[in-house]
Design a protein around this nucleic acid. Sequence first.
DNA 1: GCAAAAGTGTTCTAGCTACACCCATGC
DNA 2: GCATGGGTGTAGCTAGAACACTTTTGC
Lengths: 248, 248
Amino acid sequence: MNTNITDKDREFLKTYDVSQYDRPSVTVDILIFTVDIKHGLKLLLIKRKHPPFQGCQAVPGGFVNMDESLDEAAARELAEETGIRGLHMEQLYTFGSVNRDPRTRVISVTYFALVPSDKLNLVAADDAAEAGWFDVALDGEELKFTQDVELAFDHEEIIRLAIERLQGKLSYTDIALNLVKDKRRFSIYELQKINEAILNKELDPANFRRSFIMNYVNKGLARDTGEPCREYSARASKYYSITSPDEA
Amino acid sequence: MNTNITDKDREFLKTYDVSQYDRPSVTVDILIFTVDIKHGLKLLLIKRKHPPFQGCQAVPGGFVNMDESLDEAAARELAEETGIRGLHMEQLYTFGSVNRDPRTRVISVTYFALVPSDKLNLVAADDAAEAGWFDVALDGEELKFTQDVELAFDHEEIIRLAIERLQGKLSYTDIALNLVKDKRRFSIYELQKINEAILNKELDPANFRRSFIMNYVNKGLARDTGEPCREYSARASKYYSITSPDEA
DNA sequence: GCAAAAGTGTTCTAGCTACACCCATGC
DNA sequence: GCATGGGTGTAGCTAGAACACTTTTGC
């Protein structure tokens, strides 16, 4: 970032009136996903206690403070909702239709975050909100919830976009690693189930294994730990670990 | 979008105080690209007449009005800068570091737009701004300008991200078609040069042709018009057209 | 004739897909 | 012994990369 502020700049700043225009509210909404190996993709939603859309489910979010960046605001929201720090998180899209919130003009910068599957039960930190995990899947074009869910605002569109993005990123990033229970001790089976949950379809174990070896192990992203894994089957498999354990 | 506003909602709205919090300014910045077949990728930049960063080049942009969506704000800016309507445009990313603008807290929702190459000379609509086209290329990680350019704010980072996105989308979308002079009358050569300009590398004509036939013609996106093209070489080639000429 | 684009053909390779098949073990 | 996951093998298909070669025509 260019930080060459000149004296002229400084002089100008003194006379600049910050509050001369009407401004939209800016919120950060965060889609918090996890994968339950046995049951698939889950999304954290909050039951709204106040109008508008009282009683409906909504993606958690809040206003951006003046002294924090968008990323910081999202990280704060994420920590408030989950009680966990250091989760994977990235910006999704910014929604800004005029009447998406009936109260006033709200622009929502959305993020999605990935919670390792074993943290699923920890997440109940926010006292005020009735937060809960919802089974969700993107079946072609259609967004499907296991339960009956009434979504607030334009949140269905946001959720659909998030899952599409997740699906897309599976093929060319190692994003799925952020969903395993332990990055230093995961099995191919666990990673496969995560991929299946996001893609909402079954994958061939033989081909998945080979693609993992090719795209992760051979490229130095992951390595065989040697330790046997007996979590998922009678016959022992292997635990793998990410290679740079800085972000354990 | 969910528009089920209840009576309770309406009641709540009356008592809601819109202006109770400090709010960041929200701007829309738009990266306007074109390709000059002979010289490569070009980006429209404005010379800043006032501090901060007076005299530096900047991506054109402006505040979002309260009665327009983000997309509408971007389309308005785009029309103001280029004098052209109906250009391809899509959201890129939202930048929100606290001090990216030294005056006040500014959140910028960025868009990129694509101008057909023959419109290059038309673009000089905005009287106030000294807008100009700049040759730009993304060479690996490094952003390169042919001229000497001093960029304002964090606009270098924004430009880099935009070109990366463009490069990525070439392979799995038909986005390059938005840069040909005439979607109903373009040659494979023109499309190849556009791809080369964005990717900043030469492509094999034989392979490019085959990939065009496979990904555009065989999939019904484009068709051979039968009309010979003599623009680019002694030997005649063919003009192709997009198949649904709605957005001619 | 030369340069440059138009166009066809060929070969090699990497990666994905769909399978068939065997192994190990808990129940 | 059977279901389930672990793991190897293999054959077919496809897209892409590299490159050789011919054609056309303005200069």
